[in-house]
Design a protein around this nucleic acid. Sequence first.
DNA 1: TCAGAAATAGGACAAATATCCTAGATCAAA
DNA 2: TTTGATCTAGGATATTTGTCCTATTTCTGA
Lengths: 191, 191
Amino acid sequence: MKSAETRENILDAADRLFYRQGYENTSFADIADEVRISRGNFYYHFKSKDEILDAVIEARLSDTRDMLRQWEADSDDPADRIRSFIRIVIVNGADIERFGCPVGTLNAELAKLDHGAKDNAVALFGLFRSWLTEQFVALGRTEDADDLAMHVLAFSQGVASLSNAFRDPAFVEREVDRMCRWLDGILAPTG
Amino acid sequence: MKSAETRENILDAADRLFYRQGYENTSFADIADEVRISRGNFYYHFKSKDEILDAVIEARLSDTRDMLRQWEADSDDPADRIRSFIRIVIVNGADIERFGCPVGTLNAELAKLDHGAKDNAVALFGLFRSWLTEQFVALGRTEDADDLAMHVLAFSQGVASLSNAFRDPAFVEREVDRMCRWLDGILAPTG
DNA sequence: TCAGAAATAGGACAAATATCCTAGATCAAA
DNA sequence: TTTGATCTAGGATATTTGTCCTATTTCTGA
């Protein structure tokens, strides 16, 4: 069945273009050109632009789950896992400099468009949020685990936003270091 | 001369709509409807959409300078001034929940559009950055004043992004408190 | 091999949009 | 009051975009 492959190609191109150009600013023609497919074929696989967006978000959710699982596999230490998250802004530094955080910028755009898929995009944030919360719970911070998770999320969004604006890798590294020190402080409180 | 007034009205409407709907997603018709003016009249005052964007950013730069001056007038204490900045996310909380940070979201959108006005938008960030830097210098942190300024900026961007996603005022307050405690730590180091 | 289903191509179309153009209205100064 | 500049309205246009439709090609199972 060739269908699944074409669908996958469309999805990949849409994912990439939505990230780089934004959802609204990406046309069917853009995607079709990238996949080297006709608009007609396009509509055979996706009935509307909204449907592609839903599928793209679904794919990102799935990819994110895989990444989180990978981080879990990489280390049993919740602190290490959290550090894996903190370092995303370095690992994906080049893309973030050019296009911002894929989660944050999609969410911001959909909020402005008042688009129905915004909740799905928020679910992407939710994935990181609940995963980070789990790690903090595992570290014994049962009561404020969610607050700490949100703090770490906020860090990554702030760094991504300014990285996209000023394009200064040194700033990103400094903030990552600072965040890691903060995490160390969480682990071994001085009080 | 009625001209200046009409131009001002167009600018106000464009500013508001660009913030709420995004630049790309706001059409001339949208602005014209809001101002109750014809498209023709429109083009008498602005030759292109890009020209309006430039003017909007210019206006925001001017408004921001006024706000910073006001904060300077409100207190001679640099720490108080920095706290004024930190509290923006609460003062403008309602708008940020719905539309995100006007600076950050515009910047993100223009980066994706690869729009020439992106540098102007970054200048908006730059205004806050240099102002915050000045305050930290006044606090005696000459060496790392800019780093600290960027850290405070990153805070506001992170909080704005997540506020826009999750719409939780309690989170915003917690992060503001945390940031103020961090600032206190800067002022009176324990070491 | 062959019929029916699946997949693809590309033209057609209506709506939206940025921009242009021209005619009419308004206003300030002589 | 008249004249010329300024301002405004709205139609015209070319382009883009999302969507639909039909014809053709490719694949699959009997």
